[in-house]
Amino acid sequence: MARAAQAVDGITYVDLYHDYPRFDINVDIEQQRLLDHDVILFQCPLFWYSTPSIIKEWQDLVLEHGFAFGAGGDKLSGKHMMLAVTAAGPEDAYTDEGYQRYPLRTFLKPLEQTARLCEMHFTAPYVLYGALNAPATGQADKHINGYRQLLEAIRDDSYDLPAAKDMDVVGFKNLPLLQEARS
């Protein structure tokens, strides 16, 4: 997925672990990046029902009081926050009856609320369930392909953001793309 994202022109791809191997995140650079873009997408696997730790560290430092929230903290207002996550468990595990006990979106609530507090729009995450078996079943390739389409659509303003906001999760089968004619 990282390679697919890097190959798409017209978007900015950031590898946080590459830029900050020692976790010393440069707040100025990261805030400038946020100001320069309209859609912020976190692409990561789910670790223990949350993001990998560097994304949490990034949130702690970059979404500063007075910048992202609180008094004078409206710099991100109106922007979109998205997630593209892969989960090891199969889709039916993320139900009230499944072994994960809750739907996936429940685990993503902290991020959803973070977006809300920053006055950002949180849209449905792009999800691949059962990621461990996906390369073998061919799901991974389809998911990556869909991811490329998704990124290109966001870039070209042909991704149906209002529709996505009302969806639970998005997969490669149900990408809410706008028709060419409308865009």
Partner: peptide, 11 residues
Amino acid sequence: SRLDRGWVPPS
């Protein structure tokens, strides 16, 4: 240092 900036609780 930019590292002096840590998490600040809301007022």
